[in-house]
């Protein structure tokens, strides 16, 4: 809980907000497992459940930044483990597209992550959130110009 402790000490530290899109079968189950095994991670994340990571429209990610998210995670099943045959391949392609797009828009690459988290990987889910919170705290708030809607 270093990230949390740090925030207690310095009230002024920016408190990042993360939106995580998790597929129902692997990553959402992984996040649930983090809970059942009581793995602690910072409370900065809001999980939005979708059936497949392939459901995540890049527009959802951009909208999240526009509305004030400091970071976005799109989490799905490991390659070749997709519950819907190959939804995660599409996630991967859209992730590449988003990375380029965000780069051009001047949004730091640490603010976006596509991660494969299996239903058994509660620890990986917790670590992914922890790591992103630490990175986002370092980065500070997102540039207002970069995320202006429209």
């Amino acid at each position: 809980m270093e990230a949390g402790a740090q925030r207690e000490d310095h009230q002024a530290v920016h408190e990042p907000k993360i939106v995580a899109f998790c597929c129902n079968w692997c990553s959402y189950a992984g996040a649930d497992l983090a809970g059942t095994t009581r793995l602690q991670y910072p409370p900065n994340v809001r999980i939005i459940r979708v059936m497949c990571s392939g459901r995540v429209d890049p527009a959802f990610v951009l909208k999240a930044y526009a509305l004030g998210a400091d970071g976005v995670i799109v989490a799905g099943c490991h390659p070749a483990d997709c519950h819907y045959i190959n939804g995660n391949e599409k996630t991967s392609m859209r992730g590449d597209f988003l990375e380029n797009f965000l780069d051009e828009a001047g949004i730091e690459p640490q603010r976006f992550k596509v991660e494969w988290i299996a239903g058994s990987e509660g620890r990986k889910f917790a670590e992914t959130v922890k790591k992103m919170v630490v990175e986002l705290e370092k980065l500070g708030p997102i540039s207002k110009e970069a995320v202006q809607d429209e």
């Binding site: 809980m1 949390g4 996040a31 649930d32 983090a34 809970g35 059942t36 009581r38 793995l39 602690q40 991670y41 910072p42 409370p43 809001r46 999980i47 917790a126």
Partner: peptide, 18 residues
């Protein structure tokens, strides 16, 4: 529960906000 109280058990105030 799984995604709040059980994973933020030491940060009661923030868990409540979440």
């Amino acid at each position: 529960r799984e995604q709040c109280s059980w994973v933020h058990s030491h940060e009661k105030e923030k868990a409540t906000e979440k």
